[in-house]
Amino acid sequence: MKAGIHVPGTTRRELLLRGALGVASASGAAAVGPFVASALGQSGRIDVEVVQLALLLEQLEADFYRRGLREVPGLSAPVRQLAREILDHEDQHVEALSQLAVQMSAEAPDPPQFDFGDAFRSERAFLALAQRLEETGVSAYNGAAPMVEQDDVLDTAGQIVQVEARHAALVRFERGEDIAPGAFDKPLSMSKARALAEPYIRT
């Protein structure tokens, strides 16, 4: 990790280190001690938090589609096809984020028990909650990404958020809604994203 200090390069880790050290030399190391300490810290705690929250949201989505496909009565063919494709993606996201957590020497918790209330009573209710979950995913990734320190975490978040946004739009289209709520997707703080997931977690 410390190679970044000596070897000029283009990774964000190196930029981060050089930035912190540059500020340190410019304004006095004492003033920026905490920044440098943070930059030099073991793999960022924020990154672990981002990955673990993302994992929870993906587990939530995967369970939602898996059960919806089994339980919703009379799903139409296009909705069934869409739900299957989305489920396949969410499963891959869970897998990738679990691996990322393990690489960071962090825990990749098993999914908790989820409860989706009466969302499986009809296709209509299923799609309504699908939209809400996808939108939460998009906003959560967009809100968390700027805080991420590590390249591979940021890359993965970017690759996934684009897919979540595509899901959100396709679900909206299926429901006859505008495909985007506005020209800019609003970011969500991690605590707000977690709060939006809470009601579906059985305690």
Partner: peptide
């Protein structure tokens, strides 16, 4: 700027999918 780019990126993705 990053936040702006991200908030545009996912909207482009929505357009693309549909």
């Amino acid at each position: 700027l990053l936040a702006a780019a991200l908030s545009i990126h996912s909207v482009e993705a929505r357009h693309a999918a549909v």
